[in-house]
Measured scan of single mutants.
Amino acid sequence: NKFNKELQWATWEILNLPNLNEEQVKAFIDSLKDDPSQSANLLAEAKKLNDAQA
């Protein structure tokens, strides 16, 4: 289903952001699991944090 694909993509993207630490990655992944419908928003937040920590 649509959410599953978005969830998988967002998870992969977050796991490959170079500037997030392990705790941050885990928090984002946990949030994705809690509410897959928010995957696009969570991914945007993760990318923002990644850029801020570059």
Rank of each mutant, 00 (worst) to 15 (best):
N1L: 02
N1A: 03
N1W: 00
N1P: 15
K2I: 15
K2M: 14
K2N: 15
K2G: 15
F3A: 15
F3I: 15
F3L: 15
F3E: 15
F3M: 15
F3P: 15
F3D: 15
N4P: 14
N4W: 15
N4R: 03
N4Q: 14
N4D: 15
K5V: 06
K5Y: 04
K5G: 13
K5A: 09
K5D: 15
K5T: 10
E6K: 03
E6N: 04
E6W: 12
E6R: 03
E6D: 10
E6G: 04
E6L: 14
L7V: 10
L7M: 11
L7F: 06
L7G: 03
L7A: 08
L7W: 07
L7R: 01
L7D: 04
Q8H: 04
Q8W: 13
Q8Y: 11
Q8D: 04
Q8T: 06
Q8F: 09
Q8L: 14
W9I: 10
W9R: 12
W9G: 03
W9V: 11
W9S: 07
W9A: 11
W9D: 12
W9K: 13
A10T: 09
A10V: 14
A10N: 04
A10W: 04
A10H: 05
T11V: 10
T11Y: 07
T11D: 03
T11K: 05
T11H: 03
T11E: 05
W12L: 12
W12V: 11
W12P: 03
W12R: 06
E13K: 08
E13S: 05
E13L: 12
E13N: 06
I14P: 01
I14F: 03
I14Y: 02
I14G: 01
I14A: 01
L15T: 13
L15S: 11
L15P: 02
L15W: 06
L15V: 06
L15A: 09
L15K: 08
L15D: 05
L15E: 14
N16G: 11
N16S: 12
N16D: 05
N16A: 11
N16F: 04
N16K: 07
N16V: 05
L17D: 01
L17Y: 05
L17E: 01
L17M: 14
L17S: 02
L17F: 06
P18L: 09
P18R: 07
P18T: 12
P18W: 05
N19E: 04
N19L: 07
N19I: 01
N19H: 13
L20F: 01
L20K: 00
L20D: 00
L20P: 00
L20S: 00
L20M: 02
L20Y: 00
L20V: 01
L20E: 00
N21V: 06
N21Q: 07
N21F: 08
N21Y: 10
E22S: 10
E22A: 14
E22H: 14
E22I: 12
E22M: 12
E22P: 13
E23D: 09
E23Y: 12
E23P: 08
E23I: 09
Q24K: 01
Q24W: 02
Q24L: 03
Q24S: 03
Q24M: 04
V25G: 02
V25Q: 13
V25S: 12
V25I: 12
V25R: 14
V25W: 03
K26G: 05
K26F: 09
K26E: 07
K26W: 10
K26L: 09
K26M: 11
A27M: 12
A27I: 08
A27L: 12
A27R: 14
A27N: 10
A27D: 08
A27G: 14
A27S: 11
F28R: 00
F28V: 03
F28Y: 05
F28Q: 00
F28S: 01
F28A: 03
I29D: 00
I29V: 10
I29Q: 03
I29F: 04
I29E: 02
I29M: 11
D30Q: 13
D30R: 06
D30A: 14
D30Y: 06
D30G: 12
D30L: 08
D30M: 09
D30T: 10
S31M: 14
S31V: 08
S31N: 08
S31G: 10
S31E: 08
S31Y: 10
L32M: 14
L32T: 01
L32H: 00
L32V: 04
L32R: 00
L32N: 00
L32P: 00
L32Q: 01
K33H: 13
K33A: 12
D34E: 08
D34Y: 10
D34I: 10
D34V: 11
D34R: 13
D34A: 13
D34N: 13
D34M: 13
D34S: 12
D35V: 04
D35Y: 07
D35G: 03
D35R: 07
D35A: 07
D35N: 13
P36F: 10
P36Y: 04
P36K: 03
P36D: 02
P36R: 02
P36S: 04
P36I: 13
P36G: 03
P36A: 05
S37A: 13
S37K: 07
S37T: 14
S37N: 07
S37L: 07
S37Y: 05
S37R: 06
S37V: 06
Q38F: 05
Q38W: 03
Q38S: 14
Q38T: 04
Q38R: 10
Q38H: 07
Q38K: 10
Q38D: 10
S39F: 15
S39M: 15
S39L: 14
S39E: 05
S39P: 03
S39R: 05
A40N: 07
A40P: 07
A40D: 06
A40S: 11
A40H: 09
A40G: 10
N41A: 13
N41M: 12
N41R: 11
N41L: 11
N41H: 13
L42Q: 03
L42V: 14
L42I: 12
L42S: 02
L43M: 05
L43W: 04
L43Q: 02
L43N: 01
L43V: 15
L43G: 01
L43S: 02
L43T: 04
L43F: 05
L43I: 11
A44L: 10
A44H: 11
A44T: 13
A44D: 08
A44F: 08
A44V: 11
A44E: 06
E45T: 07
E45M: 12
E45K: 13
E45W: 05
A46F: 02
A46Y: 03
K47V: 09
K47H: 10
K47E: 04
K48N: 08
K48I: 10
K48A: 11
K48H: 08
K48T: 07
K48L: 14
L49T: 06
L49M: 08
L49Y: 04
L49R: 03
N50F: 01
N50L: 01
N50V: 01
N50K: 01
N50G: 02
N50A: 04
N50S: 11
N50D: 05
N50R: 01
D51E: 14
D51G: 08
D51W: 11
D51I: 07
D51K: 09
D51M: 11
D51Y: 08
A52T: 12
A52H: 09
A52Q: 13
A52E: 10
A52Y: 13
Q53W: 05
Q53N: 06
Q53M: 10
Q53T: 05
A54V: 09
A54P: 06
A54L: 07
A54M: 10
A54K: 10
A54R: 10
A54Q: 08
